[in-house]
Nucleic acid binder design. Sequence first.
DNA 1: GTCTATAATCAGATAGAC
DNA 2: GTCTATCTGATTATAGAC
Lengths: 197, 197
Amino acid sequence: MSFKQRMLQVREETIVHVVNRLLAEKGFDAMTVDEVAAQVGIAKASLYKHFPSKEDLAAAAMVHVMQQAQDFIRALPADAPPLDNLRAVVRWVLQVKLAGDMPNLPSQNSSLRAALIANRDYMDGLMELSDRLGGWIEAAQAAGALNPELPPIAILYTFFARACDPVVEFLQIGGLFEQAQIVELVLTTCFNGLNAR
Amino acid sequence: MSFKQRMLQVREETIVHVVNRLLAEKGFDAMTVDEVAAQVGIAKASLYKHFPSKEDLAAAAMVHVMQQAQDFIRALPADAPPLDNLRAVVRWVLQVKLAGDMPNLPSQNSSLRAALIANRDYMDGLMELSDRLGGWIEAAQAAGALNPELPPIAILYTFFARACDPVVEFLQIGGLFEQAQIVELVLTTCFNGLNAR
DNA sequence: GTCTATAATCAGATAGAC
DNA sequence: GTCTATCTGATTATAGAC
């Protein structure tokens, strides 16, 4: 890879990092392209040479977090109980969220949805992630660790939903709990539910 | 109440109804004031005579759903087990959501937050709702029905979060489940968790 | 209170020189 | 590829007549 290509790659990584933080902090609608350009330190027109639209910026950030998720998953022990790995992934998601690094996209924005669906990297990453988690879910159900009466897809969605769970922010704003406590609280309600056992 | 006042009240109810539906359908940012005025059937300037800002429109919709929630709660049997009433409230929330009548506000929009906090009706409604649910939560914990190790505030937030739970939409979009099934699935994961029992 | 018309602003995207 | 300067369209909000 040439020097020029390397510079370009570094710049794009910077852009994605800035976008990621802004998406986590204020969400897609409140994030402006001017702001992104200013924080990256380049002109807006230059930004548009790298990414052709605001939606593509968001998609790049999503691809980035999904790659990080896959890196984390690959580092998990393949022979561990599936439930342990699933808990570890959810814990990781909550920690990323608490660190202010989880982009927050409006699920209703249609142009954004279209851009995400049209993005091959995003879709491939989503598929692979779903496959890996789905495999563990079914294995955990077969082992009697996860409720076998729940459709696997519902369990998968419940995991994905932790990435935008407002309970985390609510508990964080209140200031009554440490980050580690919040993680354990949400993990408990997710896996054990609210009922007494 | 005079005829004029009655007309005014009916018109404002129409406005709130339209806003409520649009907020449920597309969220706060994607909803435009032009759209609201068009669907109500009045000019935009007239709309601004009733509500001084877009944020106030959203606040009125929130007050409306909170009043509906309180109506529902008041109709519940006072002598029923607290857990039953809590489950009934969560079920009600999910049904409102599935009916497309639950407004969806971005939790990060600061001007909106300010308008809500400044709105006495909204804050009063939120307080009363929190008090009622909080009472049931503590009673259910004392009775050994809800996990006593969870902070009541975390349980309360977990209930509130059902109002914007993306799992409901995900399952709805997939088309694999009836609305009643979705309600029971989310209720199960909420109260019983994902783990096998 | 309701309307038409318009202000004022902001944000996504682009033109064109270098 | 990067910049300055600008376009274009959308959107909140208001002025002023009736």
